[in-house]
C-alpha cells in the first residue's frame, strides 16, 4: 500500500512539474517545448488517474483485511512472484502483495470473484477469477493455532460467502 501511495505521489509531482513547465514555456513562446511538456503532463495525468484507482482498491482491500501474512514469497499458479518487503493482506475484496493487487468482489457478479479457499497446516490456497480466467494463489499463512484458522475461515465465509476447506488440522 505504501508503495502504491508513493508511486501515486510520484505521478502527482510529475504531472504538476510538467504542467508548470508547459505553462511557463507558453509565456516565452517555445511552442515545441510547450507541446513536449504538455504531452508528458497529459500522459502523467493518465497514469495518475490509473494509480489513484489502484490506490482506492488497495485501501479497500486494506480496510477489509481478513488475514495478514508476514513477508513471504507467495506462489501464483506455479511461478514465484517478486514481492517487496511489505506484508501480504487477504481481504474481502482481494489480495494486496506489496504494490501488486489481485481484486475480487469489486465488480459485482460478472467480475472476478473468489471461488475456493483451502487452508492446510502451512499454506492457504486461493482460487479466484471470472469466466475468462481462473488463477490460483498459494502462500504461507503463518497461523499456528487451530483457533486462528477457524476464525479466519469464519471471517472468509462471513465476508465473501466462500467456505474455506480446512485440512490437516
Amino acid at each position: 500500500m505504501k508503495l502504491i501511495r508513493k508511486r501515486r505521489n510520484g505521478f502527482v509531482i510529475m504531472f504538476l512539474a510538467n504542467f508548470c513547465f508547459a505553462m511557463l514555456l507558453s509565456f516565452v513562446y517555445k511552442e515545441e517545448m510547450v507541446f513536449l511538456f504538455g504531452t508528458i503532463s497529459l500522459i502523467s495525468l493518465l497514469f495518475l488517474v490509473r494509480q489513484n484507482r489502484l490506490l482506492y482498491d488497495a485501501s479497500l482491500i486494506w480496510e477489509n483485511r481478513i488475514l495478514v501474512v508476514p513477508s513471504i514469497a507467495p506462489n501464483l499458479s506455479g511461478r514465484q512472484i517478486q514481492k517487496d518487503t511489505e506484508e501480504t493482506v487477504v481481504s474481502t475484496f482481494g489480495i494486496l502483495l506489496g504494490k501488486q493487487i489481485y481484486r475480487w468482489g469489486l465488480d459485482g457478479i460478472h467480475g472476478i470473484r473468489l471461488q475456493t479457499t483451502l487452508i492446510d497446516k502451512e499454506r492457504i490456497y486461493l482460487t479466484f477469477g471470472d469466466a475468462a480466467q481462473i488463477m490460483r494463489l498459494e502462500m504461507l499463512h503463518g497461523m499456528s493455532q487451530k483457533k486462528e484458522v477457524i476464525i479466519t475461515a469464519q471471517k472468509l465465509l462471513y465476508e465473501t460467502g466462500v467456505q474455506a476447506d480446512i485440512i490437516g488440522w
Partner: peptide
C-alpha cells in the same frame, strides 16, 4: 468504511 459500504451495495 463508507467506500466498503458502497462496494457492498454495488454487489
Amino acid at each position: 468504511s463508507e467506500n466498503t459500504v458502497k462496494t457492498h451495495a454495488r454487489s
